[in-house]
Amino acid sequence: MTDQFEPTIIGFTCNWCSYRAADLAGTARMKYAPNVRLIRLMCSGRLDPTFVLRALSGGADGVMITGCHPGECHYIEQNYKALRRFLLLKRVLTGLGIEPERVKLVWASAAEGAKFAAETTAFVEEIRKLGPLCWGKDEDGRMKDDEDIGNSSIKIHPSSFEKEVPA
């Protein structure tokens, strides 16, 4: 493996469309970036913003949410509800200093295996460009090396927080 940053991405898929699109990409042996790990939901409407926050705080560098195309939801129109949450969630994430591009919404029908593969690869590239999320998992609730408040000028150096690297 090369030294380039390999992001970890959690993908939420709808049971009826995008999960099947992923299946189709598989059946058709389309190759795409291996950085995405999928979670099946019954519908993109099931996507609780908590899941996204949990994934991002738990070590994911990006989250991909996929659902049926607008107007094609198997539960009639629940994907619109996912869309609304997504748009608000992005605004909140921006306020928290997380690049909103780290969360992406993709519409992919069960027939769009190629699109699923292409969008996944593209998203991995986008996240690769953004770099690691570097989200501190402060198990003891504490930063690793707090430093003194300086003597006569700003000398506070909460040193940059390193992502936990597998041993």
């Binding site: 970890t8 979670i39 939901l41 099931r46 908590t50 070590g59 994911a60 041993a167």
Partner: peptide, 22 residues
């Protein structure tokens, strides 16, 4: 929700993000 509860999905997120896959 049964079958896709918060606990199930949260646990799956944590599991998927497990390190030490060598």
């Amino acid at each position: 929700g049964t079958g896709f509860s918060n606990e199930q999905i949260n646990a799956q997120i944590d599991g998927l993000l497990m390190k030490n896959l060598e």
